[in-house]
Computed example of a mutant assay.
Amino acid sequence: MNTIDSVSLLSFAPTGTLRVGINLGNPILANEDPATKTLHGVTIDIADEIGKRISYPVQLTPFKTAATTLDAVKTGNIDLVFVAIDPVRGADISYTPAYIQIEGAYMVKASSPLQTNEEVDVAGNEIVVGKGSAYDLYLTREIKNASLLRAASSQAVVDDFMSGNGNVAAGVKQQLESDAKRYKDLRMLPGRFMVINQAIGIPKARGHYETTTAYLSNVIAELKQSGFVADAMKRHHIQGARVAE
């Protein structure tokens, strides 16, 4: 088992507690019990494991979106987050290799003439996507002809879509399918428009972040190889995602 030196550890978690930002905008990674507010999911299991390895208590702070999670990193109030790898975010965040890969998909109304992902990027189409999500960042770079309509969060995409905004909804395949159960006459376009690599991120503003990233990268490699990540996915009944290679 690899270790982290005391100087890097002090920079990594300067308060003596590992403060972890949990993004609730992606149900594949984490969820909150509505009654008890207890957090559970793959990312919580990994955070607890890292806390054990560095012998620090873990403080979990939930956020509704990836964007607000990352904002907390920039203020210095969070030591570690679980977010999608994205070059825009990479300006401030140092990433480990991915631990999970998730599919991004499109959903349309049953009456829509659209049948394939390739038909979406056409002038006149409007894609509803969660503001600041990995899907928003990706589509902002890749979409050339269609328009993007940004919902307040990934969870709000389907409601915005069904209220009359746009003619395509974009996001985590499982999130869209789950939210769509409240409505009728919706269908997913087959396949995916992107694969999202989920990783651990730490702020580049901290000293020795390269050493800390290397340590966490080794931890992630061990957790993937040992079956820890796969077991956590099974335990939390995660479907539509796979352990990253």
Rank of each mutant, 00 (worst) to 15 (best):
A47M: 03
S111Q: 13
Y56R: 08
T116Y: 15
I220H: 06
R242Y: 10
A98T: 03
L223I: 00
T36W: 12
A13N: 14
L10R: 14
G76L: 01
S11R: 01
S217K: 08
A152S: 11
V195K: 06
N197I: 01
Q101G: 11
T15M: 03
S178R: 13
P57W: 09
I143H: 09
T3A: 13
F12D: 10
A151P: 14
I100L: 04
V122F: 03
I85D: 15
G191W: 07
T61L: 00
E126V: 14
F82L: 00
K131P: 08
G41Y: 10
V7D: 15
A84Q: 13
E32N: 03
T61K: 12
S154N: 12
R235S: 02
V73E: 09
P34K: 07
V108R: 13
F82V: 02
V73C: 01
L24I: 02
A199S: 10
P14T: 09
A244S: 05
A156T: 13
I50C: 08
K131V: 05
V157M: 13
M107F: 13
E119F: 01
A30R: 10
G25K: 10
Y99D: 01
G25L: 03
A72F: 12
V122E: 14
F82G: 00
A105T: 05
V58C: 10
F63P: 02
L189Y: 10
N145I: 00
I4D: 07
S112H: 11
S6V: 11
V168H: 04
V158N: 12
L148T: 02
Y215C: 01
N218I: 06
G132P: 12
I93K: 11
V83M: 05
E222T: 06
P14S: 06
Q115L: 10
T3Q: 11
K37A: 04
Q175W: 03
V229S: 02
G130S: 01
